[in-house]
Amino acid sequence: MQQVISRPWIWSWLAAAATFAMTTALTEGSGAGALAYAALSFGAFAAIVGLGQMLVITLGPGNVDLSIPAVMTLSGTLALKAMGSEPDTAMLGLGVAILVGLGTGAANFALIYALRLPPIVATLAASLVYQSIAIWSNRGLRIKPPAGLADFATGRIFGVPNVALVGLVLAIVVWVALERSVWGRWLLASGQNMRAARLAGVPVEMVRASAYVTVTAFAAVAGYLLASFSGGAALNMGQDYLLMSIAVVVIGGTSIAGGFSNVPGVWGAALFMFLVVSMLNSYGAGAGVRMILTGLIIIGIVIAASTRRASK
């Protein structure tokens, strides 16, 4: 039991389960399936961008990617444009999205490395440029995703939303990379002490670069799926995901001080963030109350995590 309690990811899952129970209690159980389905669908996008953000935050204080919303918008826009609603172009669209992700990640890290800008400022400044490219290419266009892709993005297998399956596969890939691969060890070592890691033979710049490219690649995939899911790309489609991506990482139990990541926690937190909103909705809370409570919950979780750390 002690073992289970001490795992930081358990908390976000418990919180998600509690909110789920409280929501369904109101309706006496009816609609539980639909609620779970919606949570998995919408949580998947937060989880995917959260996984990427987690890798960057693991690099240590000051490392965070603020370009996620712009990259999502850009990738959704360019991918839909490339596909042009033609059938059988889903793979082309995915390819475009991934290229956008790799390109923006490389650009972000180039600013961070070559110009030695703090990552917060570098990704912020770059995201303005990405946003502009998206606006320019999206101008007056309203392109629908190809029918097959739209069906996939909104469809399900064995009752589980496809987007959640994609999120799950990506989570497993990230988990293996972090927990089992040499690269993961290098990333965690760099996040604890960059200088010590370098002196222990870790190629720290390669590790940092790969983390910054991965986060935008994940954001690009999330943007591609979200655009297909919601029937087209919109210029503001990414805006909720900036704070969301950081929130799910922190609630999920990843250390903001770096060097410690938590993959299952990100998924739990993503579900929780959606369920909290639907719980408050079903209890009739207005938008203002929803936001206030969300904020207080985030702060409460950070305080709980820090006192747990202190008592250890």
């Binding site: 060890r185 965690l188 070592a189 604890q192 002490n193 010590a196 002196l199 222990a200 250390s255 060097g259």
Partner: peptide, 12 residues
């Protein structure tokens, strides 16, 4: 400053 990775086990 230069050596220990403080969050990890002795093994790691």
């Amino acid at each position: 400053r230069d050596g220990i990775l403080p969050l990890w086990s002795i093994l790691r």
